[in-house]
């Protein structure tokens, strides 16, 4: 009933001619992480390019905390007028299971604008770790599961998700050593204090190229342009092991369709902007295709990702609250 009401309300707003001029004032795009991090960088790039197309400034607001759920919760409660947006990553899907008492329903509290990018991940290890390839790694890890330590950047982080997916794929439970963020985890990995981890290319590409850490496999379907010598997990003997940290733009549920359409079109244009493409490349990622930067594609992605991560997180038994 409520949904019909909001839909009707939305239709009424569209009918008023004033709304045809959307956006009439500055738009706020909330990032649920602190300034300076990878998600913040992605947001600022996209927001800048989108604002050129929309003819209005997009103000980026960092509402960090609680694994992104504080910022997402804020947008879920915001006015659905198209002037408050959210850019969130895969955490939107995993928080549905990681947090057992969430203040909003990730599936029903938002309208979808579109996907932005899908950052690939790489399984990396300390430089002198014995196994030669992914197959060797899996055998070694299974044989020495009481000795091996794998690092992650804290519960809910990309590296934590990938680690859980890896354990579930090889059906072995290992000792996870959590760190506060990727930086210190990588430092200890280079220093040989822990054995391996799995993290985004944004954080690992340079160190792999400088041979400070060893790369076993990418979590993608195809090899990466930035790391052509690193095989995919599929080539290495783990078919179907694909994890990407996807980013997407959302609006509060009930945002007028006219606004969503305009935003979606602006997003698609931004993802073709040479400046965005170039800066994404320097972060080790690429924009999604035009078809994926749409509300329908995002809705499907979110649904499938929530379903995919639920059993992985539940079997690992590691929750964030």
């Amino acid at each position: 009933m409520k949904r019909i009401m909001t839909a009707a309300l939305g239709a009424a707003i569209i009918a008023t001619p004033a709304f045809a001029e959307y956006p009439e004032r500055a738009i706020t795009m909330v990032v649920p992480f602190s300034a300076g991090g990878p998600t913040d960088t992605v947001t600022r790039l996209v927001a800048e390019s989108m604002s050129k197309d929309l003819g209005q400034q997009i103000v980026v607001e960092n509402v960090g905390g609680a694994g992104g759920t504080l910022g997402a919760g804020k947008v879920a409660k915001a006015d659905a007028d198209g002037y408050t947006l959210l850019l969130h990553h895969i955490g939107m899907a995993t928080s549905a299971t990681l947090y057992r008492k969430l203040a909003y329903d990730p599936l029903n509290a938002f309208d979808y604008v579109g996907l932005v990018t899908d950052v690939p991940m790489v399984i990396v290890a300390r430089p002198n770790f014995e196994p030669a390839d992914l197959k060797g790694l899996i055998e070694y890890v299974k044989a020495n599961k009481d000795k091996v330590n794998y690092a992650n950047a804290g519960i809910g982080a990309a590296s934590h998700l990938c680690g859980m997916m890896f354990m579930s794929a090889i059906e072995t439970k290992l000792t996870a050593v959590p760190y506060k963020g990727t930086g210190p985890a990588l430092t200890d990995l280079m220093g040989g204090q822990v054995d391996f981890m799995c993290d985004q290319t944004t954080n690992t590409t340079n160190q792999i190229k400088e041979k400070k850490i060893k790369a076993y496999a990418t979590t993608t379907a195809k090899r990466l342009d930035a790391l052509p010598d690193v095989p995919t997990a599929g080539e290495g003997g783990l078919p179907g092991f694909q994890v990407g940290i996807w980013h997407a733009v959302y609006a509060p549920k009930g945002t007028p369709k006219a606004a969503i359409d305009k935003l979606s079109a602006a997003l698609q244009k931004a993802l073709k902007d040479p400046n965005v493409v170039e800066r994404f490349a320097s972060l080790g990622t690429v924009p999604v295709t035009q078809e994926e930067a749409t509300p329908a594609a995002l809705e499907a992605k979110l649904k499938s990702e929530i379903a995919r991560w639920k059993p992985v997180i539940e079997s690992a038994g590691e929750y964030a609250d």
Partner: peptide
């Protein structure tokens, strides 16, 4: 705030704002 190893909120008096 949140414990690094278990992600449990500690000494936060159940306030969301203190979780970090």
């Amino acid at each position: 705030g949140r414990d690094l190893n278990t992600a449990l909120p500690r000494m936060t008096f159940d306030l969301m704002a203190m979780i970090d």
